[in-house]
């Protein structure tokens, strides 16, 4: 069954465990990766928003890529960036209106959330369940037409 990644800012405490989990999950050659998720102030007291890729349907990053390095993984639904194909032109970094394609200067590459291949570490480690990855609750049979 398709799973869905959801964010509930009301549960987020800004502890940044998600950032750490993401960073360590993307370690290459002993170098921790730059997080693909950021607990960011939401503009109100005690309100934090974990900002990460929404895996848009008609994604600007995919459209902007001139070498087809960004493709959706049909299994996870994540838009994955193929590092071997990426030419680092920064088109996607500039095009994403949510700022969720970014540069990892340490590992010298363009990065974005890949849902950890189907088991996102941020959700797994989120202590408050502000981040979840579970079977989609939106089922056609449950939608009732009112009135």
């Amino acid at each position: 069954m398709k799973k869905q990644f959801s964010v509930d800012p009301n549960l987020c405490t800004g502890c940044r465990t998600c950032e750490l989990a993401c960073s360590f999950t993307h370690t290459v050659d002993g170098k921790a990766g730059r997080p693909r998720i950021y607990a960011t102030p939401g503009g109100f007291e005690d309100l934090w928003v974990p900002v990460t890729c929404l895996q848009c349907d008609d994604a600007a990053c995919v459209k902007s890529c001139l070498v087809d390095a960004l493709k959706r993984n049909p299994e996870t639904g994540a838009i994955e960036l193929n590092e071997a194909v990426c030419v680092k032109c920064m088109a996607c970094v500039a095009a994403c209106p949510f700022g969720c394609a970014l540069v990892d200067p340490e590992q010298d590459k363009v990065i974005k959330c890949d849902l950890c291949g189907g088991d996102p570490a941020c959700a797994r480690f989120c202590p408050t369940k502000a981040l979840t990855y579970k079977p989609s609750e939106l089922k056609a049979s449950k939608i009732k037409v009112l009135g």
């Binding site: 939401g42 928003v49 970094v93 949510f98 394609a101 970014l102």
Partner: peptide, 16 residues
């Protein structure tokens, strides 16, 4: 990208 993330957080913050 960074300012985009900040703006996204503020938008989602408002909704929350």
């Amino acid at each position: 990208d960074e300012c985009h993330r900040k703006a996204t957080a503020l938008t989602m913050g408002k909704i929350s």
